[in-house]
Design a protein around this nucleic acid. Structure first.
Length: 329
DNA sequence: AAGTACCCCAACCGCTGAAAC
DNA sequence: TGTTTCAGCGGTTGGGGTACT
């Protein structure tokens, strides 16, 4: 491999990647603070791109690949870190159902989130629970469960959280996500060149996030139960006004009338007590043993507990879903 | 307190398509 | 036009942290 790449001079007769790394004494493994700062400073002065030459010119004993990954997944000023919010979970579930493991494409719809982070979320949370349910994450069963049970309930929780927050009259949000600027605090002048419009304002971010969800989620009354909906045929119309309208209808409809469940019943043929959310809650409560547990459960469903942020999956979800998988088909 | 199991996530690997030569 | 190099993507791994026993 010839590594006399444009820009900086460096040569080697090595022929493989590992040879090159050996001959250049390239580092691997965790990045040090010094390396981070070197990379940040270099990019703030020269911009991104040409990663291999960038690595050499910056004096980093790293591959271009490694530099690119470090920058994109960690050092970029607009990278959002922390818990995946309910809205983001909803988006991930929806977009994955549409595009599959197209992590970077999915990440484009979650500002500040990296494909790596979304991929990790999917693998560690979603696949884990599919495993616990003893079904394949790509099976129709699991996909139906997500689409017709999980996602509506996420919407429910988002609404509950919003209602709770508006009822209390506070400006707090449910997100615990933090921007990751620990290394940027001394380099604020560099932010402007690649500043992201979502990096500094949580409330505006969340508003946009909800708007985005409203635009793309195919869970309106029409699309939601439309069996012809497929990842392929939905991609172009997903952001259309009609889709946004569907979603607005969906939110309003669901907020005011639990009959929307009947459309799902028609599609899924689930018993009322299980598809109707209030019935589901009752069933859940009947399943609970103690008042204390019941109180905790109520808190969780309606935004009183941190689970609403931390994790939309819980033991009761799994129990319920297992029942669905056992009896629902 | 120590050992173990599990979870999370940063980083690496291998492949592919695009761009450069 | 064929070859080489690069950037980007999805899959995988390993280490650190935490929870559990």
């Amino acid at each position: 491999m010839d590594i006399n790449v444009r820009g900086c001079s460096s040569s080697s007769s090595a022929t493989t990647q590992s040879d090159v790394e050996d001959s250049l004494d390239l580092r691997r493994g965790p990045w040090t603070v010094e390396e981070d700062l070197t990379l940040i400073n270099y990019i703030s002065n020269h911009g991104e791109g040409r990663w291999n030459s960038l690595a050499r010119c910056a004096g980093l004993k790293r591959t271009g690949k490694s530099c690119r990954l470090r920058w994109l997944n960690y050092l970029r000023p607009d990278v959002r870190r922390g818990n995946i919010t309910l809205e983001e979970q909803l988006l991930i579930l929806e977009l994955h159902s549409r595009w599959g493991n197209r992590w970077s494409k999915i990440a484009q719809h979650l500002p500040g989130r990296t494909d790596n982070e979304i991929k990790n979320y999917w693998r560690t949370r979603v696949q884990k629970h599919a495993k616990q349910l003893k079904c394949d994450v790509n099976s129709k069963q699991f996909k139906d469960t997500m689409r017709y049970l999980w996602m509506p309930r996420l919407v429910e929780r988002i609404q509950a959280a919003a209602a709770t927050s508006s009822a209390s009259g506070s400006n707090t949000t449910t997100t615990t996500t933090t921007s990751h600027h620990h290394l940027y605090n001394n380099n604020n002048n560099s932010n402007s060149s690649y500043n992201n419009n979502n990096s500094s304002n949580n409330s505006s971010y969340n508003n946009q996030e909800l708007t985005t969800a409203t635009q793309i989620l195919p869970v309106g009354r029409g699309a939601f139960i439309n069996s012809s909906f497929t990842p392929e045929n939905s991609s172009t119309g997903a952001s259309s006004d009609s889709m946004a309208s569907d979603m607005r209808d969906y939110y309003t409809f669901q907020a005011n009338n639990n009959n929307y469940q009947n459309t799902q019943n028609a599609h899924m043929n689930y018993p009322d007590s299980q598809t109707n959310l209030s019935g589901y809650f009752n069933q859940e409560l009947a399943y609970q043993g103690s008042d204390q547990h019941q109180q905790q459960q109520n808190n969780m469903w309606f935004g009183g507990g941190e689970d609403i942020v931390e994790n939309s999956w819980n033991v009761e979800d799994l129990w319920f879903l297992q029942q669905q998988l056992m009896h629902g088909n």
